[in-house]
């Protein structure tokens, strides 16, 4: 078991290297010259060739590509992601740290919503298959998967905040501000998981162990919750784990719709300002999150399944 975990962790190292490299290459492929951007942002009145060369030297842009990649990688490992081009008094790490809590709050609230809504709804849909509840939910699932989140966000804002005046339209800080964006982010995940849990449960209901549980005269509650739901959830564990980084990265559009002061807003404004170090660090962070959560939940699934877990190890 320990050996498996260790091997699994080691195997992610090459993956992380590839991600960092791709991330670095893509940012460097952007056609505009970062030195020029830095100058423009610092409001230097006349941009001369010498000024550009000077800034290139200052930012280390005149060194060969691979040298720049390696030095950037080592800086990243030390937690130093560079300095914002736009605002040289701020470090990239500082900017990310400033915006991360708001995004985590939003993603966390969305995750809670996803779990609290999709498990009971998926469960009830499977238990009352083809009943009214199941049919209504299936229609809703169908509709919500077809709608893009920013549009749902705008609709909710229009209806709940403007028409009914129940919740604030935008901004952050309070619980009331959190509800609409969290719901918007989680909506498509709720649909996905309702479907996944419903189908997993229906699949499990056909298994021999359910027939035998009925043969033994176990109460329906025990069969449905202890056996069928647990087995169905089991196959969802990895999917839910992979949804966490997706939720974090998926907030990018919704944060902008609701002016939520998180990473997504920071990233979009950095894209408009051509603030490369921040974009680079953001992309890297999201990539690393995907790898880490994949690893974590893979291990978790192995540990929680008696068939995969080796006794006494």
């Amino acid at each position: 078991m320990k050996q498996y975990v260790f091997k699994r962790i080691l195997s992610t190292i090459p993956l992380l290297l590839i991600i960092s490299f791709v991330c670095f290459v893509f940012i460097n492929l952007i056609p505009s010259n970062p030195a020029e951007v830095a100058l423009r942002v610092r409001q230097v009145p006349i941009i001369t060739e010498e000024a550009i060369a000077e800034v290139e030297a200052e930012l280390g842009l005149n060194r060969p590509f691979l040298v720049r990649y390696v030095s950037w990688l080592f800086d990243c490992l030390k937690g130093d992601f560079g300095i914002s081009y736009v605002n040289p008094s701020r470090t990239v790490a500082g900017e990310l740290a400033r915006c991360l809590p708001a995004t985590l709050q939003l993603a966390g609230a969305s995750l809670v919503l996803v779990i609290l809504l999709s498990i009971p709804i998926g469960f009830l849909c499977a238990v009352y298959k083809d009943g009214i509840f199941d049919k209504v939910m299936r229609a809703l699932v169908f509709i919500t998967t077809a709608m893009p989140p920013y549009w749902v966000g705008l609709l909710l804002m229009w209806f709940i905040s403007i028409k009914l005046d129940l919740l604030p339209t935008s901004g952050g800080g309070s619980f009331a501000h959190l509800i609409l964006p969290a719901f918007t982010v989680s909506l498509s995940y709720i649909s996905t998981y309702i479907r996944l849990i419903r189908n997993n449960m229906l699949e499990n209901m056909k298994q021999d162990y359910v027939l035998y549980a009925n043969v033994r005269g176990l109460p329906q509650k025990v069969i449905l919750i202890k056996h069928i739901l647990k087995n169905s959830m089991h196959t969802c564990i990895v999917a839910i784990g992979m949804s966490i980084p997706q939720l974090i990265s998926g907030t990018i559009v919704v944060e902008n719709v609701f002016a939520w002061p998180g990473l997504g807003t920071l990233c979009i404004s950095s894209i408009f300002n051509r603030d490369y170090p921040i974009i680079q660090a953001y992309v890297l962070l999201i990539g690393v999150l995907f790898v880490v959560f994949n690893l974590l939940f893979d291990i978790l699934q192995t540990v929680s399944d008696p068939r995969l877990r080796k006794e006494g190890a």
Binding site: D208, Y209, H227, N231, R307
Partner: peptide, 11 residues
């Protein structure tokens, strides 16, 4: 039942 291997809940 017929298939003892699949009649018990694996978890």
């Amino acid at each position: 039942l017929q298939n003892p291997m699949t009649c018990f809940d694996p978890l």
